[in-house]
Amino acid sequence: MLAFTLRRMLQAIGVMLAVGIIAFAMFRFAGDPVNQIVSIDTSAAERASIRQSLGLDDPVLVQFGRYFINALQFKFGVSYQFRLPVANLLMERMPATLELAICATLFAMVFGILMGVYSALRRDTMLASLFQAVSLIGISLPTFLIGILLIYLFAVTLGWLPSFGRGEVVKLGWWTTGLLTLSGLKALIMPSITLGLFQMTLIMRLVRAEMLEVLRTDYIRFARARGLTTRAIHFGHALKNTLVPVITVAGLQFGSVIAFSIITETVFQWPGMGLLFVQAVQNVDIPIMAAYLLMVSLIFVTINLVVDILYTVVDPRLRSTVGRTA
């Protein structure tokens, strides 16, 4: 167990190092860090001296080390567009993205699991086919089209929900939340659905497939031979065995939800990290791009690590490889 955790952590660090190299390469070679400081009419001599002072003439390895140490302290340089430290910009926008991603994930899990279980247990019903159809459409409609459709329906036509922004937010320390005001909650609905729909489809398909798979296993057959009630078999044995892999996948998907929020945030002008990133790509603001990559990777890697460890807690077979022996 300890060895497993350690190995996983080493892997995580390896991944972060790899991403760090890419981020550094972008920062250093695709963008010119001098641009962070100077304006267009700075003379070549001045640029050279700035280069010197920034250490851009040092060996690449030294520069990488410096970038890495800075990154560890959340110093990602200065945005070309805003002339502000990238770290501050990201921090300011992180709560919006995280709140959106969490709501979307909850939405996706609740509905995905319910629909998946239903369509596995009642395979031949109308409703199950409807869910299948919805899932196909959910996979086929690009996120931004879903967003536009929702806006047209609920904001433009019906006028029930706001079409952009976060509504009123409340400050809790450095965190800002939209969960405490009515307008904030209303503003969350459409973006959460838009962002969560794809994950919901995935979860539903996965739950359905897993559940059907589990229902075919020997231990379910044996549970039936023991005369357990259908209820106990479906919602005790089968569901528990289904949810272990499903929760793993859903957990791992949380990282993608954050990355996918790029699109949703653009459609709904949601002031999160994704919107910041899209604007950075449009305006070639390399420091923000590099930092966003690092931040998102960090979130990914952390989640993967946590999920892996949680998995061993849920599944006794993995837990005791080192622990108790028979």
Partner: peptide, 15 residues
């Protein structure tokens, strides 16, 4: 594989 394609595509694009 852990990163969504859209993020990679955006990065390639930006670079």
């Amino acid at each position: 594989l852990t990163f969504p394609a859209i993020l990679i595509a955006l990065l390639v694009n930006g670079v």
